[in-house]
Design a binder for these strands. Structure first.
Lengths: 146, 146
DNA sequence: GTGTTTGCAAAGTGTTTGCAATTTA
DNA sequence: TAAATTGCAAACACTTTGCAAACAC
């Protein structure tokens, strides 16, 4: 059995998490923060999905603020941007090195833990280029019943 | 030394290539086709870059037609769409299974041949999902001299 | 109070579409 | 001539931005 002591230290509250990120705990940021991190599970959201989620919960936040907040969270290291689709931007609450299944039909993302994955045969990056990150996207199609 | 007899059979002409794809060889499609495939090298274009290229060469084509043509070529198997950036769509003349270096700074793409690459440890796709394609994107940063 | 954050609406970017005019076979 | 293709301009989806009002400390 593996220990999980390397998990991120759980924050006592969303306020604490925001403070640690150097962001004022405003009403809007608090509800977004709670929604993203307090379920305890990895989440994949777009600005739109997160926005309608908080709206449905009765919290008033503008879409522009959701966009801004997602980027602030990303810059602060709380989120990670995932590029799998030309149209929309996904944000992942899992910020550790890992990969993704992407359901091209429904637009669903599923994490693939980065631990067991080994890529063999990758050539050296060109010139003096430094590798920033290696992303694997497994594009899958789930048969839709029609 | 490896033989290269598995390369795509070279087409006598752009006309022939279009016919084989079931597309009428119009003036616009012909110049786009020539530009894409007659250099003999792998190319990575966006609608914008290809459009300004043909314009610069004195050929009159509308941007809308470039978009439509790129998608027709893709559907016909002449091109492959590459998703590396949320903003723009790249098209690759290399349609075989392979991967990419992506210069996040300059937006440049570079192919990584698919032959030597082995990914170990990928879990089974969820449910009855079928894998459509596995993409590796190595995001690199080339230091810009300032 | 002072600097930060918000919301709105407008602007921006890349892409798609409807349709009349043109071109191809 | 009949069917396919083009170009334009308008529509589109998603995202960013400018700025006055609201808010946090």
């Amino acid at each position: 059995m593996q220990d999980s002591s390397h998990h991120h230290r759980p924050f006592a509250s969303a306020i604490e998490r925001l403070r640690a990120a150097g962001l004022r705990p405003t009403r809007q940021r608090l509800s977004l923060c709670r929604r993203l991190f307090e379920g305890g599970q990895v989440r994949h959201v777009t600005a739109e999905t997160l926005h309608s989620e908080v709206l449905a919960a009765g919290v008033k936040v503008s879409l522009a603020t959701v966009y801004n907040t997602l980027h602030q969270f990303t810059k602060a290291g709380l989120l990670r941007e995932v590029v799998v689709d030309g149209a929309k931007t996904y944000f992942d609450t899992n910020t550790s090195s890992h990969h993704h299944f992407y359901d091209v039909e429904h637009g669903d993302l599923l994490d693939i833990g980065g631990e067991g994955i080994i890529i063999e045969g990758l050539p050296q990056p060109p010139d003096g280029a430094t590798v920033e990150r290696v992303d694997i996207v497994v594009r899958v199609r789930r048969p839709s019943r029609d």
